[in-house]
């Protein structure tokens, strides 16, 4: 019976590997056959895959409920755009600046997270995020206020170049997530999520690992943010908004929390959304947000006890479903 299960899992892995290969090959065709709209959509999907992995690492693995994940993303955007547009630094410096700001911010968030839990942690995040959001508007000389800064034209990159960078970044973060999940760090993250007390008594420094998780996750989000700045060639305070945070969360939850495949499967939602928005007039933008929100609400109604619990109700959906089918047929 048990070996049977193992076998089934082995077989199940094969289609997944095949699917991922197919995805990569399919992705390679986009710049050849696709037009600008297609390419933009694909790039947005890639960005959400990176952000999804980032959120999945922090919440799916380490169990720290990150509610304002756009904070890290936005700091990445601002790090890049300020250093490039204001100080004319090279792109790599912009990347590092974003990363540095994010490491500082995430260390603060991680420290809060290792001290506070539950509602208090979430409230602290909202407070921090609101602080940074208002600062991004108020510090007009540095950030460009509500309208934001636009980057000089010499930094403008070809769409297909951007596309390839996005694809490589997405693949790299996917691999990084898979690697971290299997490494010491990943084991420690899940252990502290599942049972902090036992982790502590088995010698794991829970506080340190919490900070570590936040820093790792924020670094990933910072990459996505810096890239987004190059992609949009500007910044504005809306990158800190709740909408982006919620989109990231929905992408992962729809795809399956805690699993490597979660963000990849979930990013199909972004593709759909961007397609609809590409076709519809801009005045319809509020509707797309409402659709996202409704998806989340419907999922909550269907899974009332635990939208964010790993591997139980909705997590690891691909595996979970196949198991269920087996048990019913028996």
């Amino acid at each position: 019976m048990r070996s049977d299960n193992l076998l089934r899992r082995e077989r199940l892995l094969h289609p997944l590997t095949a699917v991922s290969l197919a995805l990569v090959i399919l992705a390679a065709f986009v710049p050849i056959f696709g037009d600008r709209l297609m390419m933009n959509i694909a790039i947005m999907a890639m960005i959400y895959i990176i952000l999804g992995h980032s959120w999945n690492l922090l919440t799916g693995l380490a169990g720290m409920f990150s509610i304002t994940h756009a904070l890290f993303f936005g700091l990445g955007v601002y790090g890049m755009s300020i250093s490039v547009a204001k100080f004319h630094l090279p792109i790599i410096a912009g990347l590092l600046v974003g990363l540095l700001i994010n490491i500082v911010m995430s260390a603060i968030v991680g420290m809060i997270g290792s001290k506070l839990s539950g509602l208090y942690f979430v409230m602290a995040q909202v407070g921090l995020s609101q602080t940074i959001y208002t600062l991004s508007i108020q510090l007009f000389p540095l950030t460009g206020g509500v309208t934001g800064l636009s980057m000089p034209r010499e930094y403008l990159m070809d769409k297909s170049t951007l596309y390839w960078i996005a694809l490589i970044l997405a693949i790299l973060t996917t691999l990084a997530f898979a690697f971290i999940r299997k490494s010491r760090m990943g084991t420690m993250f899940v252990a502290l999520k599942e049972n902090p007390d036992l982790s502590l008594s088995l010698g794991s420094n829970v506080g340190k690992w919490r900070i570590m998780a936040t820093v790792m996750s924020a670094s990933m989000a910072s990459l996505a943010g810096s890239f987004y700045a190059l992609f949009m060639m500007s910044n504005n305070p809306e990158v800190f908004s709740m909408v982006i945070s919620l989109k990231i969360i929905i992408v992962v939850i729809v795809g399956g929390i805690g699993s490597v495949w979660g963000p990849i499967v979930g990013s199909s939602l972004v593709v759909m959304d961007e397609l609809i928005r590409g076709i519809m007039p801009t005045t319809m933008a509020p509707f797309s947000v409402i659709i996202y929100a409704l998806v989340l609400i419907i999922m909550a109604i269907r899974h009332p006890e635990g939208l964010i619990s790993i591997g139980r109700s909705i997590g690891l959906k691909l595996e979970g479903k196949s198991m269920k089918k087996v048990s019913i047929s028996k």
């Binding site: 010491r184 084991t187 420690m188 899940v190 252990a191 999520k193 599942e194 049972n195 007390d197 036992l198 982790s199 502590l200 008594s201 088995l202 010698g203 794991s204 420094n205 829970v206 805690g258 790993i310 591997g311």
Partner: peptide, 29 residues
């Protein structure tokens, strides 16, 4: 965690262990 490092370990009365991890990973912790 420091106490564990100096060489005192324990098992809990009502432990759920790490239900999402495999046996190997749990012992790895």
């Amino acid at each position: 965690n420091k106490i564990c490092q100096v060489g005192i370990s324990c098992t809990f009365q009502k432990s759920q262990l790490f239900s999402a991890l495999t046996l190997e990973e749990s012992v790895l912790v």
